[in-house]
Write a protein that binds this DNA or RNA. Sequence first.
DNA 1: TATTAGCACTCGGGATGAATGAGTGCTAAT
DNA 2: ATTAGCACTCATTCATCCCGAGTGCTAATA
Lengths: 342, 342
Amino acid sequence: MAMDDRKQRIMMAIVSLYSAEGEPVGSNLLCQHFDMAVSSATLRNEMAALTRLGLLEQPHTSAGRVPTAKGYRYYVDTLLQNPFTLPQRDKDALDATFRTLDYDPEKMAQGAAKALSDLLGYAVIATTPQADDMSIAHFEVLQVGRYTAAVLAVTAAGGVRTRVAKVDFELAEGDAGAIARVLNGHLRFVAEADVDSALIRRMVDSLGANGPRSWPLLSAALTLLGEVGRPNIYFEGQKHLLQWPELENSLRPLIETLDDTARMEKLLRPRSGHTTVLFGDEFPEAPAPGMCLVSRQYLAGGGLSGVIAVAGPARMPYREVIPRLEYFSELLGQGMSGMAAH
Amino acid sequence: MAMDDRKQRIMMAIVSLYSAEGEPVGSNLLCQHFDMAVSSATLRNEMAALTRLGLLEQPHTSAGRVPTAKGYRYYVDTLLQNPFTLPQRDKDALDATFRTLDYDPEKMAQGAAKALSDLLGYAVIATTPQADDMSIAHFEVLQVGRYTAAVLAVTAAGGVRTRVAKVDFELAEGDAGAIARVLNGHLRFVAEADVDSALIRRMVDSLGANGPRSWPLLSAALTLLGEVGRPNIYFEGQKHLLQWPELENSLRPLIETLDDTARMEKLLRPRSGHTTVLFGDEFPEAPAPGMCLVSRQYLAGGGLSGVIAVAGPARMPYREVIPRLEYFSELLGQGMSGMAAH
DNA sequence: TATTAGCACTCGGGATGAATGAGTGCTAAT
DNA sequence: ATTAGCACTCATTCATCCCGAGTGCTAATA
C-alpha cells in the first residue's frame, strides 16, 4: 500500500485544514474542502489507510484525524521539494525590519530573534555566530573607562567576542598592553579544559604588583575562553507560545526546555545548509508534544555560523514561515559578515 | 473603628498564611496558626471588621478571606517601617552572582535581570541607566571594522550610549572623524522632535560625496537621539510567572503588558529613593489582578539612574524579596558607576 | 463588655447521569 | 472501485444533587 497521488493530496489537505482550524479533521469537513469528486465514505477509507501508515492519528475514537509527527515529516519533506519564492514585497518588509537592527553580533542576534518573532507571531531562538575552530588566536585589551577595559578575543576563524570588566584601581597608560601581553603569552590556542590553577598563578605572577588587582580582567578572558565555544542563545517572543491551546498543558516544561541554554545548544548543534524541522515528539530527553522547531543555519563569513529557529505549534503554516526564516537568515548572515574585521 | 494591635497581628497572620498557601484563609485555619488564646468566633468578628475596612475580601460568600490591594498596601507599608538587615551570607550570594555579570551597561542590566529572576524565582525587569537630562552633549565615531563604525552619544549628564552601523563602502582614515564633526555640528543638544528632513538634508550635504553612503551612521545617530531619553528595558524570567495559579487566567495580557516597552517605561518612570510596591489592580489602563511589581531605583552616578523591578503574584514573600532587590540595586548602581568615564 | 459556643445559611466544587452530535468502520448495493 | 446507509463509540455539555468549608448572627458565659 503505497502513497498514490490521491493519498498525497488528501494528506496535504488534512495538514492545511488542521493548520487553519486547529481541530481534528473529519471525513465530512475534508469532503467539503476537497474539490475532487469523491464521497466522504471514500475519504474515510483513504484516511483509515493513512492511519495504518502512521501518518494520521485520532485523538479518540469518535474524533477526526490529526497528522502525526511522521505525517508532518512527510508533508514537510514533500513540500520542501518545490522551492519557494518569496514575493518581493515580503522581502522588502523583512529588509526593512532587518535594517533597524544594531550591527553588534550579540545585539543583532537578539534583535533579529525579537523582530522575527513579532513578524511571524511565533517564538524565535537565535544564537550568536560561532566558529568551528573554537580556540582563541589572540587577545586584545582596550581601555574603555578609567577603571574599565574591554577584553577582545579573536578566534582562529576570525570571530571576535568581547567582555568588559572593571578593576578597582585607576588604569595607567601601559596597563592594557601589559595585560594583553600576558593573556597572549599564556592563553593563545589553549583549550578551556587545560586551564588550571597553576596556569592562573603564573599569569597573575607575571603581572607583578598589578597581578591580583587585575583579576577581573583575567577572569573576563577566561570567561571568553569558555564562551567562545558556546554561542549566546536568545529566546524571544515567549508570549506568542501562550496563544496555542494544544501547547497549554505542556507550556511550563516547554518554555523551560527552550530557555535552557545548554539543552538548546545541543538541540541546535547539528547544522546543515538546509532548513531543519524538528517536531516536539522527536526531542531527546524532554519531548514536547504538539510543538515544532524550524531551524536554519546562517553563515556569517570567516567560518562563523549561527542558527536562527522558529518555535511554535506543529500546525504552523510552513509555507509562510520557512521562506521567511530562510530569507531572514540570509540577511543575518550577510549582516554579520565582515563584522569580524577589526 | 481603628486598627488596634490585635487587628494588626491578625492582618499580618492572614497575609503570611495566604502567601504560604495561596488559598483564602478561614477563621479556623487562622485560629490554629495564631497563638493568641482566642476562638475562631472572635477572629470571625475581627475579620468582618477588617473586611469593612477594605483590607480583606472574600472571593465568594463561603470562602475565607484574601488581602485586598489596600490590605497589601497596609501590610507592606507597616512592614517597611522596620528596616531589614540582610544576613551576610545572603549578601555574599548576591555579590557572587553580581560578579559574573559583564561590565557593559546593557549587558549588565539584562544579566542582572536574568540572574535576579533565577535567584528569586520571579520575573524581573531592569532598565539601562538613563540621564535626567536627556540631550546629547557630543558624539564620537569609532571605526570598528572595515565597513563598520560605532557611534557613541555622550549625554549632558555623562552617560554613554552606543550603536554600531555598517556602510557599504570601505571606511578610510578620516571618515569617522568627518562624520563625527557633522554629527556634533548639527545634533548637539538637539531634541528628537526638532529633527526634520531639512536638517537631515543639511547633514548629508555637508558630508559631500560620502553623504548618502554614510546614511546608516547618521541613522544610528538619530536612533541614539531617540533612544537616549528612553532606557532599554529587559524583561527576564517570564517562565517564573507560569507557576502561579492565580495569575493563570490573566497570563497573556499580563505578559503582554510587562513586555510592552513603552507602557513599562511609563510604569517605572516615577522614581524615588524608596522601594515602590505597585499592585496589579492599581495599574493604569490594564489592571492585572493578583500581580505585583516591586521596583527600585538604582543610581549609576553622574545623574544616571535606572530601575530594577520584581514582578510576581501579590502574595510574594516581601520580607525575602525586598531586601534582596534593594541590595542588588545597590550593587547594580555601584557596578555601573564610572562606566560613563571614557 | 468582650468572648465564645452553637446554629442556620450560603455557595463553590465535585460527582453523577442523560442527551447530543460528530465521526467512525463496516456492509451491501451500484 | 465507489458510495449510501447504518449501527456504534465516545467526548462534550448541561442539569442535578450533595458535600463541606466558611460565614454571620444570636444567645449564653466570664
